[in-house]
Design a protein around this nucleic acid. Structure first.
Lengths: 337, 337
DNA sequence: AGCGCAAATCTAAACGTTTAACCTGTCAAC
DNA sequence: GTTGACAGGTTAAACGTTTAGATTTGCGCT
């Protein structure tokens, strides 16, 4: 079996020069009908397929955007992914995705691959410890926009939901319903997202009792911690979970321990699981403005790409965009006495 | 701002030839300590980053596998994605993913991109109308393994759950519990997966009443159809849904119409949503052997890649692997009178 | 001093494209 | 019957690597 046919093979078969073949393929210059026919036929017969590597190598551009996510299981993340896919589609770009699986090393290697393939730009939701990746990205000077999980790092543009505002909204709502003991739980304490939420949580709490609980790394650990806390004196009456996976862990633990939601504990979850309203009771959620975030990120990215193309790299200051989440209170939250 | 530094720039700065730089980068040949030091320093100072395009162009290989999925929202699909990611990681491969969003055109273009980047191989869950993509893949002679949704197409290896067996199992179980009127519902009637399920559904039904209902393309359509059917004479007592999204649609429609599960209608769902056991009642599911499928697909693919490297392309017959699903009956299914 | 040999280094030719620059007819306009 | 203009064609030089193969160097032996 011979190797893959190249533009040279096509040219030979059609009896023309490789330049002419290239012009036919890209339509970048007029080619006579007769030769064009021969070339097209040769392409079909040989089963010629363009070598994108050589193509982008030579032309120095590609219309491929890389997207990096920690995982795909959360509703917010795959919503984001699908929104970006759709925007890319309508703008004539391609998307190549990677999954870091919350592993900084893996994230680093995957991003390296994307950069090695000279994607036009990158949109990423960083893992919980992205420092080396950030350094790499910064050195590479590739256009990048961070989403959602930002870091104390001013080198990149980012787009996120307004975490403080969202948290303040929930706390106010819960207090308004008579709750006086609130529990917030999250998995990664050093995510800026988490820190902002904790900060707003404490600030908005006022004279209510506010407590933070670290989930730990798996369902069992968290379940045990949560139930233990509920059994101790002065238990919280409302739980705010940092995403839908944590919420799931919590729900299972409550079920197993015979604690009722919302009678014994009200629950609100960040994230927007599709299953929120088929639960009994329906789950209260803080919904990300997913579409808006995706569009904003795309906008920033295309500006950066334009900038890079013009050689104006890094001239513009980095920009930080925040958008409001919406609180949807439902059956999982109850009014107290 | 100058363009990205290349191996040439590094060579000039270190006062050596480009070959030496290449040897240092790849460790493919011994290089003296002194020069190696100079080169490494030059690399660091210039912020040199390898151009993977040129690299794979020249070396004709890459350790990147493409994965194509219709969407990411189903538990099965993202489980598959994550399983493949992990296997790739442990075998020293990279994964690049694309989402076809159930759009054959988009699928075709994305696969083209992947092929253009000369990925080593491809694992894909085809969209509902993949014919042109299949032709492209076949012409390209790239190593490919199909997963889950197969087609009457013998050109590719594929791995799937055993749909007939799974369906037979559910139907038997339901009949065993006294159900005599079953409804199966799916979205794409021409998917082979659907056809096999329908076939087994009818065969296993015996003297019970078995009916198939097409969902239509959105939640409202399906909700209306489902409720309408339940209101007509001789309503089904059990529903088998083709995946978790359809199940969600069904649950919402039932809720809105005040139909109770499982009292008025038992439900079993293909797919394995994480939220299955936090529902009231807990959802009965048919769980894909996700991990096993991922591993089998990976195995077939690496064999094909090896074959391609050896120039033995297409010599081996295509192989079809099927694995058993597991039925998990829970509260959403009730015993009848 | 001369030889052989291994290690270190370099030269140069690929890999498959794109594209600037150049060449050749044809044909309309004067 | 010159002169352009222009369409259609070609040549050849990149793009940034890898890697045979040639060359140089250093060193231990006679």
């Amino acid at each position: 079996m011979s190797r893959k046919p190249t533009i040279h093979d096509v040219a030979r078969k059609a009896g023309v020069s490789i330049a002419t073949v290239s012009y036919v393929i890209n339509g970048s210059r007029a080619v006579g009908a007769e030769r064009r026919g021969r070339i097209e036929q040769a392409i079909a017969e040989l089963g010629y397929f363009r070598n994108g590597l050589a193509q982008s190598l030579k032309s120095e551009t590609s219309r491929v955007i890389g997207v990096s996510l920690p995982y795909a299981a959360s509703a917010y993340f795959h919503g984001l992914m699908e929104a970006l896919e759709d925007i890319a589609e309508s703008e004539g770009f391609e998307i190549l995705q990677i999954l870091s699986r919350q592993d900084p090393e893996r994230e680093l290697r995957r991003i390296e691959t994307l950069l090695a393939h000279r994607v036009a730009g990158l949109i990423m939701v960083p893992s919980y410890d992205p420092h080396r990746t950030f350094d790499l990205l910064h050195r590479s000077r590739a256009p990048v926009v961070m989403v959602d999980r930002l870091w104390p790092d001013d080198r990149f543009d980012y787009v996120t939901m307004n975490n403080r505002e969202a948290m303040t909204g929930v706390v106010d709502a819960l207090i308004g319903l008579g709750h006086r003991a609130l529990l917030f739980t999250a998995r990664f304490p050093n995510l800026i997202t988490t820190q902002q939420r904790i900060e707003a949580f404490k600030a908005a709490g006022g004279d209510a009792r506010v407590e933070f609980l670290l989930t730990g790394d798996d369902e069992e650990t968290f379940g045990a911690r949560l139930i233990e806390r509920l059994r101790r004196p002065l238990p919280p009456t409302a739980l705010i979970a940092s995403n839908s996976i944590i919420t799931l862990w919590a729900l299972k633990a409550l079920q197993a321990a015979g604690v009722s939601c919302p009678d014994d504990l009200s629950i609100v979850s960040f994230d927007e699981p599709v299953w929120a309203d088929v639960l009994t009771p329906p789950l209260s959620i803080i919904r990300h403005p997913t579409r808006v975030i995706a569009e904003a990120a795309w906008g920033l990215l295309t500006e950066r790409i334009e900038e890079a193309r013009a050689g104006e790299l890094g001239r513009r200051k980095t920009r930080h965009l925040e958008f409001s989440a919406t609180l949807e209170l439902r059956g999982s939250v109850t009014r107290l006495a």
